[in-house]
Write a protein that binds this DNA or RNA. Structure first.
Length: 282
DNA sequence: CTTACACCCTGCTCGC
DNA sequence: TGCGAGCAGGGTGTAA
């Protein structure tokens, strides 16, 4: 479930509690998430200090003092539980446990095991299989109307599917794509190339997508940050902020757009639910 | 190259 | 109260 804002919130929580800490002991309780964990991960983490906590798309990029990177993806249900002391008995679905040099404790918990981890030399980061084909970070200058128009040019796939493609914009998921398209007034069913101008030039519609993408993500990160008061932040941060969604999960409710009298509908596109207003999204 | 779709997994909700 | 069906959707692998 976590999309970019949720992962960013987790990153900030980890940065607060892990940065500068050394791992005294690590334990892998279940070595198979979506794929196998890197061999000897517990041994390789032991004695290491966390020197940077970064994010790329929905990946956590955790840099260690020996130059290696611990790459973590939360999948659907992955989360870190942090506590200032050893909580004793592990929780159900705690797959990786860390004991830190300040007495703190971290547990990676993932009920559905859609998460993934890797551990490799930092120089390999850019070329890593999971990262090399990612598109621009949406909150960086790499995403612009010009760059987005070029990528969408000629794409016949529905706009909804295009925006979910991590090669188009890195870090968007089903929920925020629905929100972005509603705010931009664009139909999720429209073929992606139909909003691009001649010669792959941006149009006002492309500009709107970029604006609303940045607005939605920034607002969500801000909302997430406000929940990061203490240890419970990283713990509980994976809750979205459901009351702030305008269309996601609101099938049958009135469209929130000013003056729009229609009702939010749900359709399925490439196996995912799409929530949208057929009247004000064109 | 592009596009589409099945698969992995568990917890929760819903209807009977 | 139990129980099965359906749903949730990240990323990846495969096929057309």
């Amino acid at each position: 479930m976590p999309e970019l804002p949720e992962v960013e919130t987790v990153r900030r929580g980890l940065e607060r509690h892990l940065l500068g800490r050394t791992v005294l002991r690590a334990e892998v309780r279940r070595p198979d998430l979506r794929g196998p964990l890197p061999p000897n991960m517990a041994e390789d983490l032991t004695g290491r200090r966390f020197v940077a906590l970064e994010r790329r798309a929905k990946y956590l990029v955790i840099r260690l003092d020996d130059g290696k990177v611990w790459l973590v993806h939360l999948g659907m249900t992955g989360r870190f539980s942090l506590s200032p002391t050893d909580p004793g008995e592990p929780q159900k679905h705690d797959h990786v446990l860390l004991w830190l040099d300040d007495g703190g404790h971290a547990a990676f918990n993932d009920a559905r095991r859609f998460g993934s981890m890797d551990l490799f030399p930092g120089e390999e980061l850019k070329g890593h299989r999971s990262l090399r084909s990612l598109g621009p970070e949406p909150l960086s200058p790499d995403l612009s109307p010009e760059s987005l128009a070029v990528v969408l040019e000629g794409k016949k796939t529905p706009l909804k599917s295009a925006l979910l493609d991590q090669r188009v914009i890195a870090g968007l998921g089903n929920i925020y794509v629905c929100e972005i398209l509603h705010r931009a007034g664009l139909s999720p069913r429209r073929a992606a190339h139909t909003i691009v101008g001649k010669g792959g030039r941006p149009t006002p519609r492309v500009e709107r997508i970029v604006e609303e993408t940045q607005a939605v993500l920034s607002e969500a990160i801000e909302a997430g940050g406000s929940t990061l008061k203490d240890f419970s932040g990283v713990d509980g941060a994976l809750g979205y902020f459901p009351h702030s969604f305008r269309v996601y999960g609101r099938e049958g409710e009135p469209c929130p757009s000013k003056g729009c009298q229609k009702t939010i509908e749900r359709i399925v596109q490439s196996g995912r639910s799409t929530f949208f207003c057929p009247s004000c999204q064109r």
